[in-house]
Design a protein around this nucleic acid. Sequence first.
DNA 1: TATTGTTATACTCTATAACTATA
DNA 2: TATAGTTATAGAGTATAACAATA
Lengths: 146, 146
Amino acid sequence: MTLTNALESRLGYQLRRASAVMMADLSRELADLDLRPAEVTTLLVIAENPECSQTEVGQALAIKRANMVPIISRLMERDLVARRRIDGRSHALTLTDYGREIATDAQDRIDRHEARFAQLLGATDMQTLFRCLPVIRTVRDAEAEA
Amino acid sequence: MTLTNALESRLGYQLRRASAVMMADLSRELADLDLRPAEVTTLLVIAENPECSQTEVGQALAIKRANMVPIISRLMERDLVARRRIDGRSHALTLTDYGREIATDAQDRIDRHEARFAQLLGATDMQTLFRCLPVIRTVRDAEAEA
DNA sequence: TATTGTTATACTCTATAACTATA
DNA sequence: TATAGTTATAGAGTATAACAATA
């Protein structure tokens, strides 16, 4: 027997379920790069902002300072990211050549993944979503170190 | 300096960020009930489907059988849920009187929480969201025990 | 053989507090 | 004093494999 579920008419619930489906699809698409979603997003933000700091990446992605440490650490271990001391307390992050290669590959995979859903929804609804979702975030974003 | 972030134009990223904001808001709203989101949703599904089984709740909420165990366990410890053996291997779940009280309280809190966002978005966009988000889930839902 | 509930375990992301060494 | 990075630790959700008891 299938149960009724009044939560289906709740926005928060629908967002969470839809988000979970897209995350699962993305993870499948990224599986053979052996990169977690949080690592890929970090990689891409560094790619477009060379010489940025760890804290700045965290602010852009709503990842707390403390949680950036193991992410950057793993990206450096895998020789995807390099860092250079700026002053005694901050670093400038850049991608290595290999990191740029992987970032390009990851971009292609994300493009394919996104295209599947964009096609399913159509341009008009996609526009509405891109207008609505940022509005939701204005309530109070789970921004790193609010 | 604020960084650029091309992920902002990705549906999966926007969904994840928006979902995180709503989850955080919900958690605040439910804080003094000392119930986690997964426990509340379980409570509400049992409320509207008395005599249901653990597996059925899991299927409705996309929570795996194995992960339902500690949820039900905690709800029973707190005397919110009772269960009765159906046959040698399955149970019928129902709310206790106290569980019904808490479920009503939780509903009110969720209503307030949802109303904040519904007001922000307006009826037309809400309708679009409730049409689009289930479509996203059709790609391949992270259904329990697919 | 398939199903219900269970145990054990690991992974991913997130959260907080406190520390260091700088600035 | 405030900031960048770090450590340690806990919590929440999710994932898999394997098992017992039962249908």
